[in-house]
């Protein structure tokens, strides 16, 4: 009941059509969370598809997914799209990301010759390389972070 009341207060007559759509999405998320999830995933997919088509058509150097990511951030910052009305769909897409990778792994089936010839060496390069990247990234970030914190503390002590 509390949520219904909340909707009435935000549902003023002066609000734009866009706002009404978001209010409807929130109502749907409240009443039928599963349907809202499907709808939000669908919306994100359509948005990606449109941006992908635009990036191709305009020969942009950026891939469509990156363009869509940037545009969505702009829309969120401009408060055109409230984050709450896409949260469920986005969280689901991110949670199931490993599933989307699986068919890509099966490409190994097409490169069995290469795997036989260079597989162990490739694996060694990936393992050692990834370890180097992880350790150096973490150390760099941690050092800058500590340096920044020391400087901030120094400044507050000076006052």
């Amino acid at each position: 009941m509390k949520t219904i009341h909340f909707h009435h207060t935000t549902h003023g007559p002066s609000l734009s059509a866009m706002r009404t759509l978001h209010a409807r999405m929130r109502l749907l998320a409240h009443r039928r969370p599963q349907a809202a999830l499907v709808l939000q995933v669908l919306l994100l997919t359509l948005f990606w598809y449109a941006c992908d088509a635009a990036a191709r058509r305009l020969h942009l150097p950026l891939p469509g997914s990156v363009l869509a990511l940037g545009l969505l951030l702009v829309l969120l910052a401009a408060r055109v799209v409230p984050a709450t009305s896409l949260r469920r769909g986005a969280d689901w897409l991110l949670a199931e990301m490993l599933l989307f990778f699986i068919p890509a792994v099966m490409a190994v089936w097409q490169h069995l010759d290469l795997v036989r010839a260079e597989g162990p060496r490739i694996l060694a390069v990936i393992l050692v390389g990834t370890l180097i990247v992880m350790v150096s990234t973490a150390v760099m970030v941690d050092l800058v972070w500590r340096w920044q914190r020391l400087r901030r503390e120094g400044r507050t002590h000076a006052r």
């Binding site: 994100l44 997919t45 990606w48």
Partner: peptide, 11 residues
């Protein structure tokens, strides 16, 4: 679906 998943990182 990796495309829409990349977009979802905006949230």
């Amino acid at each position: 679906m990796l495309g829409p998943a990349t977009v979802a990182f905006a949230l």
